[in-house]
């Protein structure tokens, strides 16, 4: 799968396609990041736009105002998002279920409004990132989207690896235990506040990295693009659509959602306003109604059927052998 994603842009040489692939990778990666805190640890965040936006703004502002290298800005943004996550999480984790979810939403909304009315960063007008020469160090490429793709691809690979390591380590087991029952987790010696905090910080860090990358790719950001609830919900949707709590889920979800929304936007542009989202909304409703475990759940059930079918076959064989 990862390899297929990697070679596709070189087979299909089309700028629109390359654009869709970059956006796809960014959102798949952010989905993975969100999946760590919500899918594994079971703490529903409706406010990941906050971290995405912090990443986008930090690197952009540092570059625009202070000429600081975007890679350094990316790291700074990630650190800032992590710190924010830690500060916000401590009080928020006292809240359970929906109360927590609404709190994350509230935090993201507050940050958005502060940025909107913050003149230093041009408020609602947004920031155009100064255009400089092409190059890896500058993290700007104007002739082709392929370099962006490669960078997104590598970073996405790192995120996949981190997700995999998290899931298959003590941390992953602990997070899932907390999700399933915080009481049972505590009775097994798990400090759930600590582990949720770690999960949130990792999640925020990774989300911010891709916020920065997004800003460097689009070269323009405003608070509504990167801090809005739409971003938060897009992340939630694609993971739930693909299959929450699994590593493949966010990738599959993004692979469906992003091309759908990007292509319909490219196709209909300004004219068919809304049609893409109508189709998309209906699709989401259908999946929710008929595939409640997401697409990964559906695939699993199908392969499970296959496995049990072959197993059944094996059993009859054995039976026959025994008789003969």
């Amino acid at each position: 799968m990862y390899v297929v994603i990697g070679v596709l842009p070189f087979i299909i040489q089309n700028t629109n396609f390359h654009h869709v692939m970059v956006i796809f990778l960014i959102f798949a990666a952010v989905g993975e990041a969100w999946n760590i805190i919500t899918g594994f640890a079971g703490q529903t965040s409706f406010g990941h736009a906050a971290f995405f936006g912090i990443g986008a703004y930090t690197s952009s502002v540092l570059f625009w105002k202070f000429k600081i290298n975007p890679w350094a800005g990316m790291l700074a943004g990630a650190v800032l998002a992590t710190v924010t996550a830690a500060i916000v999480s401590y009080p928020a984790f006292r809240l359970k279920g929906h109360y927590f979810a609404i709190a994350t939403l509230a935090v993201a909304e507050i940050i958005q409004q502060l940025v909107v009315s913050w003149d230093y960063v041009e408020g609602a007008t947004g920031i155009s990132i100064p255009v400089v020469a092409d190059g890896f160090l500058n993290l700007q490429f104007h002739k082709s989207k392929i370099p962006y793709f490669i960078i997104a691809y590598v970073l996405f690979g790192v995120v996949l690896l981190i997700s995999y390591l998290v899931e298959n380590s003590k941390l992953g087991y602990y997070l899932k235990a907390i999700r399933e029952s915080s009481d049972a987790a505590e009775a097994m010696g798990i400090d759930h506040a600590l582990y949720k905090l770690i999960a949130m910080m990792i999640s925020a860090f990774l989300t911010a990295i891709f916020g920065s990358l997004y800003a460097q790719y689009i070269l323009y950001i405003d608070p509504f693009m990167v801090f809005s609830m739409n971003i938060s919900m897009k992340i939630v949707l694609l993971v739930v659509l693909g299959g929450i709590g699994t590593i493949m889920g966010p990738v599959i979800g993004a692979a469906i959602l992003i091309p759908l929304s990007e292509y319909t936007r490219i196709l209909f542009g300004g004219t068919g306003k809304g049609i893409d989202l109508i189709i998309f909304g209906m699709l989401v409703v259908l999946v929710a109604c008929y595939q409640p475990h997401g697409i990964v759940g559906m695939l699993r059930r199908m392969s499970l059927l296959k496995v049990s079918a072959t197993k059944g076959g094996g059993a009859t064989h054995a039976g026959r052998n025994a008789v003969s």
Partner: peptide, 28 residues
């Protein structure tokens, strides 16, 4: 003392209303 700390000292308990980690396997 918080339950997880108590557990780390070597004292722990089961629940009357069982709390299996449902989506995980028995081994997990």
């Amino acid at each position: 003392l918080r339950p997880y700390k108590v557990c780390r000292l070597g004292l722990t308990r089961t629940f009357q209303i069982v709390k299996p980690l449902k989506e995980m396997t028995v081994e997990e």
